[in-house]
């Protein structure tokens, strides 16, 4: 699987497991931890299932095995221990972990934050910049690298969803609402983005690119309007 990731040109990559920013990175870590835990649980259940066949059906099995004195003890082990307590403990840990990450990814106040505006429509994105009010770019979003950026997401028609998988999770553009997504790219570069919510026949081509600049490139962009 890693080879598959490596084969992909970074420029086009939409891979969530090839993070290029802090938000995508913590989510990728979350995924690998959950994958490991889920694999363990799956193997555990399958082993239990396989072990139940340790005594294959015998010829006198015509009459069902009735209740016996061990039934209460069995209920305790299987239902209370494995059915109730085991999931509760695992899930409590996972939920707490997920909520802590979720809180950290919220767009909190930060003096360094740069604000941009993403406006979705069928089937293009228009980006404008709080630091350069006259500037509008189409299907290309410019941001400074290594700086937290708040993307204020809106739509003029149907629901779209703003998604740059290597930088952060997705957030919808809903009519009448403005949603704010915090993204950040560690390094200068180009990052592919797509609209993730089905929005009509032009959905496939509803793509954009995020260009992260170094400090120089960013100020050049703000003054000249060109990278």
């Amino acid at each position: 699987m890693t080879t598959l990731v490596l084969l992909v040109g970074c420029e086009n990559s939409l891979s969530t497991v090839d993070p290029a920013g802090p938000a995508a990175n913590v989510i990728a870590t979350l995924w690998w931890i959950m994958l490991a835990g889920a694999t363990l649980i799956f193997v555990f259940v399958m082993v239990l299932l396989a072990l139940t066949f340790r005594r294959p059906g015998v010829a006198d099995a015509d009459n069902p095995v009735g209740e016996d004195g061990a039934a209460r003890g069995r209920e305790k082990v299987w239902l209370v221990g494995l059915g109730l307590c085991f999931p509760l403990v695992v899930l409590a840990a996972l939920l707490a972990y997920g909520l802590v990450i979720g809180e950290r990814l919220l767009p909190r106040d930060d003096p360094a934050v740069v604000t941009v505006h993403a406006e979705g429509r069928q089937w293009e994105w228009r980006f404008s910049y709080a630091d350069a009010p006259d500037l509008v770019t189409e299907n290309v979003l410019h941001i400074p690298a290594a700086t937290p950026v708040d993307v204020r997401i809106t739509t003029v028609d149907v629901i779209h969803s703003f998604w740059v998988p290597r930088l952060a999770g997705k957030l919808d553009a809903l009519p009448g609402h403005e949603n704010v997504l915090r993204i950040e790219a560690w390094k200068p570069g180009r990052y592919a983005g797509v609209s993730a919510e089905y929005n009509g026949p032009g959905f496939l081509g509803h793509r954009f690119v995020v260009i992260a600049h170094d400090a120089e490139g960013w100020s050049a962009f703000l003054t000249d309007g060109a990278p």
């Binding site: 909520l99 979720g102 809180e103 919220l106 767009p107 909190r108």
Partner: peptide, 10 residues
């Protein structure tokens, strides 16, 4: 329980 721990409207 999130009423006690998460941010209210963020």
């Amino acid at each position: 329980f999130p009423v006690a721990v998460t941010s209210t409207c963020g």
